[in-house]
Design a protein around this nucleic acid. Structure first.
Lengths: 213, 213
DNA sequence: AGTAACACGTACATCCCTGTACGAGTTAGA
DNA sequence: TCTAACTCGTACAGGGATGTACGTGTTACT
């Protein structure tokens, strides 16, 4: 893994090549999880053999791309102020990082095919926990719903981000609009639902006492 | 396309084989869009050559599987009473057909790789319009939001259904729970948002504490 | 300036999947 | 029962992707 670990000594141009390859892999794989190594090399502007000189297998390349995307995501997330009202914090977080998170989600599809199962969950653990904690805090503040499992809520957010990125790439949603759509949708999903009765279901959750009627 | 069109004359066992192949293709492809023809034949309990005897190309097989899933979805959808309150109608619709719609969405990924682009949209047009009409009716009734484009809402529903099916398959959500989760989430997304906070405005009601600490 | 690291191409072996060809055994239906 | 339809295996050609091998330029760092 020539990416982050301190290789004993590498020349500057090698460093540059690796950076371009990883960047190309991120964009290519997030667009098409089955993008070939050759495609990625071409997109990076290097020969396929140069790529194989730095990444011995496709799996190594995919892992490097995913790790780099996650690192970028972590960086973006950690620069967001998560204090104060959880709803506003979530809005700030989504506005500034929806594209990165969506990219990570898309990349993880490629990773699922090339990496052992455990390795993927391992890489996803930290960022996922971050979002979970924010949601949990919102629940403690009473501004987020508690009638649905947190894992489900996190997952729905992931899927929405992925959908938003795809709609954006397909040209059906302007880039400037994505943030608003995602935030409005996420806000609705996480908001405490009105005590409105659910008519179809006699057996309703009844597990959530948020604000007494 | 030996599926639905009235073939002039086919023997009963051929009919049975085709049915098993299409069924196997539906489950296999919705789980893995890249499932090979051989995998599908094995899952159907027939030889690969038998399969090729009925479907000349992989594309034909994928299209038949998708068409069959869409047909089943249409059937399920058309048996749902869509009259009355749009929210309750949507709940009924989701409860009785979330798995089918999720399967169709998953299958369309396989179709995207094997079918010409136009063919896919053509197959998706009718069911998508159905959901769009229901949402539009809810908007007319004043029970669904109008601040987000309908196409976005439909898309988000698709992604949530797909996510729910995947969570279910991964064993993280019980089958009996999926309906409730999907309905609760969809309801929140489509509900008219409270005039509470406008995401674009920095001037949010300063003391917006919902329930005291 | 010299040396080791790097870029890069061509060629090759391998694997997997698709689709075709031939042929023999088996079953449905008149 | 007799025939056409169906099943199903093996074998083969083609394409695409992954890795490997070898060789020649080119560039960075000392």
């Amino acid at each position: 893994m020539p990416t982050a670990s301190a290789g004993p000594r590498r020349r500057a141009d090698a460093e540059r090549s690796i950076a371009r390859i990883v960047s190309a892999a991120r964009t290519a794989l997030s667009g098409d999880p089955d993008a070939s190594v050759d495609d990625i090399a071409k997109a990076a502007g290097v020969g396929r053999m140069t790529l194989y000189g730095h990444f011995r297998t496709r799996a190594e390349l995919v892992e490097a791309a995913l790790a780099d995307a996650m690192r970028a995501g972590e960086e973006a997330l950690s620069s967001v102020d998560l204090a104060g009202d959880a709803r506003e914090a979530l809005a700030r977080l989504l506005e500034s990082s929806w594209s990165l998170v969506a990219e990570s989600v898309a990349l993880s599809i490629a990773a699922q095919k090339a990496l052992p199962a455990g390795r993927l969950r391992e890489l996803h653990a930290a960022p996922a926990r971050r979002v979970e904690e924010l949601i949990a805090r919102g629940q403690d503040q009473g501004v987020f719903r508690t009638d649905l499992p947190v894992s489900w809520l996190v997952n729905v957010l992931h899927y929405i981000l992925k959908g938003a990125a795809e709609e954006n790439r397909a040209g059906r949603v302007e880039t400037g609009e994505v943030g608003r759509l995602v935030i409005a949708t996420a806000r609705s999903i996480l908001a405490v639902p009105p005590p409105d009765a659910t008519p179809g279901h006699p057996d309703v959750s009844a597990g959530a006492e948020v604000s007494g009627p």
